[in-house]
């Protein structure tokens, strides 16, 4: 084919559209700035902002797996909360076994105990995800109503299994010595654990971005979200990819469960289904299937919940729902809608 036959041409994206694509990213600093003006006191604002970001990061950890599973597999998994709860209980058990390490004055021993608890929780919830996908989800691919029913059924079964293994009572999950207390910066008191949560959440987000953008499996996930059929036609076994993603999403929920349990310091069999309301709001705000959207949505929910709890506690109850309504009125498909060819 000659160069003269086809003049290279590429459609230019108008400036307005380019700005519109970047606009959701600006929402987080804008909300933080509005929060500063409304709160007035910079020290209180800093404390609330770090608390909001930490909460947002933990919700992101739990929601990221759910959004990728939905985007790639078109599966609405109402049982995702089960992995959060199981992760927290496994983390609790491991930390109880390692009580000597968590009570030690050594920061290294404390963090190692948390790391072991996280890895164990991710391993167990990842394997639980494998069983969940094979037994519960696989028979109902492509059937949304059945997916909702059977995954909710799976959630109930998992909660009952937690009762069987750990008993019906809520358990106290104390943080290791090094993660207790606050750092005082000027007049602001910032809980150490929240800084750890922000660090882990940020590292996870950057890691996921790197994998999705720079590795072949990441390319396959992104391509599969858009057109799974074409990925199969190129010779890749999408079902196998589904399973890997489902297990990873479940393991991330387990990680989120440990983090959330240490944050709340109490765990119950129902903690997963309770947090799932916020998780679903974040996934919907972000755009079903979008990791970036999920991250921004989680930050917005975390910040808004903390600011409104300080400014107007009664409004805090509806603030996240109001945020979702506002975002969906502006962008009905969420902040970063995922293009699907199906």
């Amino acid at each position: 084919m000659s160069e003269t036959a086809i003049k290279p041409r590429i459609e230019k994206i108008p400036l307005k559209e380019q700005l519109a694509q970047k606009l959701p990213v600006l929402l987080v600093p804008v909300l933080a700035a509005v929060g500063l003006i409304a709160i007035g006191n910079p020290a209180s604002w800093l404390t609330l902002t770090v608390a909001g970001l930490a909460m947002g990061m933990m919700i992101f950890i739990m929601a990221s797996g759910l959004t990728v599973v939905f985007g790639l597999m078109d599966v609405i998994n109402f049982g995702h909360g089960a992995f959060v709860a199981v992760g927290a209980f496994v983390g609790f058990t491991v930390l109880a076994w390692l009580a000597g390490w968590t009570a030690s004055p050594s920061v290294f021993m404390n963090l190692t105990a948390v790391l072991v608890a996280i890895l164990a929780a991710m391993l167990v919830t990842g394997l639980l995800g494998l069983a969940f996908e094979r037994v519960i989800v696989m028979p109902v691919y492509g059937e949304h109503l059945k997916q909702i029913l059977v995954t909710m059924g799976g959630l109930i079964v998992a909660q009952q299994m937690i009762y069987v293994v750990w008993g019906p009572d809520e358990l106290h999950m104390s943080r290791p010595e090094a993660l207790q207390g606050s750092l005082v910066i000027g007049e602001a008191a910032i809980e150490k654990y929240r800084l750890v949560a922000v660090g882990i959440g940020l590292a996870l987000f950057l890691g996921m971005r790197h994998i999705l953008k720079n590795t072949k499996i990441g390319l396959l996930v992104r391509a599969g979200v858009e057109n799974g059929e074409m990925v199969e036609a190129l010779g890749y076994r999408v079902r196998r990819l589904f399973l890997i993603v489902f297990m990873t999403g479940s393991a991330l929920a387990g990680l989120g469960g440990v983090m959330w349990g240490l944050y709340q310091e109490t765990i119950t069999a129902h903690m997963g289904s309770e947090i799932m309301v916020l998780v679903f709001i974040v996934v919907i705000i972000g755009g079903l299937g979008s990791v970036e959207g999920c991250f921004i949505g989680a930050m917005l929910v975390g910040l808004l919940a903390n600011y409104t709890a300080f400014l107007a506690p009664k409004v805090a109850l509806i603030s996240t729902i109001a945020l979702m309504v506002a975002v969906l009125m502006w962008r009905p498909q969420g902040l970063y809608p995922v293009v699907k060819a199906k």
Binding site: K216, L219, R222, A223, N227, M230, A233, L234, V338, V339
Partner: peptide, 21 residues
Amino acid sequence: PEDMGIFTDLTVAENMILAAA
């Protein structure tokens, strides 16, 4: 395919990398 099946979220290079299965 008739609808071309291009992965629009990926670059041209990434589309080609995936095609080399």
